[in-house]
Every structure is written in C-alpha cells, then in structure tokens.
C-alpha cells in the first residue's frame, strides 16, 4: 500500500469547517452561513448526475456571490413559500478527503447526505 501521509491537523480544520457550514444550514442560520462565503465564491449544484460545464448547460444551482446574497435575502422576507414552514434538516458529511493543497488553495472532496422533513414528506 502506498504511504498516505495526511496532514491531520489541516484535515481536522477542513472537517470542522464543513461541519460548521452544515450545522448553520441545518439550523437555518443563514446570516452566519452567508458570512462563510468569500466574494469570489461560487455555489454550484450540477444537474443530471454529471458535471456538465455550468457555463454551457443547466445546473440546479450555479450562484455567484451576489446571487447567494439574493437567495438569502429572499429567504429572509419570510415569504419564501417553499421554506415556510421551514424544513427540518440534517446533513451527514463523510469521506472527507484532501486531494491536493497549494499555497492558498485546497481541493477537498466529501460525501453529503441530506435528510429533509417537511409537509411535502420526508426526503433523503
């Protein structure tokens, strides 16, 4: 087996960040959640199970920083029907893996399972 040196301190820090992000979203603490974003952040949820170029094909979410802000403002009106009443949410994060790291850039993958309970029904 190839040697696997993991910077466990860095990995721990990454995991804590991902858990915090998940907790803030689970708890609908969107102002704190939004504060995690840098100005060049992009929130991308690809569609159709493949990672088609979001500049060319439809994604479920492909938000730049200002659209992330707009999304939160919309929620904060209290009139966003799809989240009124709010879903009960729990995100499970696992398989956190640091694929590469450079000066100011980390490439991290993880698996996420979201459990949502709402009047619409329960969705995993």
């Amino acid at each position: 087996m190839a040697s696997m040196t993991v910077n466990s301190e860095l990995l721990r820090e990454i995991e804590q960040f991902l858990y915090r992000e998940a907790r803030l979203a689970d708890d609908h603490d969107y102002d704190a959640w939004e504060a995690l974003w840098t100005s060049d952040g992009v929130y991308w949820i690809p569609a159709n199970g493949d990672d088609g170029d979001p500049e060319q094909v439809m994604s479920i979410v492909y938000d730049n920083r200002s659209r992330i802000a707009l999304r939160i403002k919309q929620l904060n009106t209290g009139k966003r029907h799809s989240q009124n009443p709010r879903s009960r949410l729990r995100r499970m994060i696992s398989n956190v893996e640091l694929l590469s790291s450079a000066e100011d850039e980390l490439h991290v993958t993880a698996n996420v399972c979201v459990f949502e309970s709402n009047a619409r029904g329960d969705i995993t």
């Binding site: 439809m58 994604s59 492909y62 938000d63 659209r67 999304r71 966003r80 799809s82």
Partner: peptide, 14 residues
Amino acid sequence: TMGSVGPAGLLLAD
C-alpha cells in the same frame, strides 16, 4: 433561467 427555475429556483420552487 438557472436562477429562476427548478427545485431551487427563485421563482419555480414556490
């Protein structure tokens, strides 16, 4: 379009 439609759409989710 991406902002508006689909299950996360600013319009269509509602």
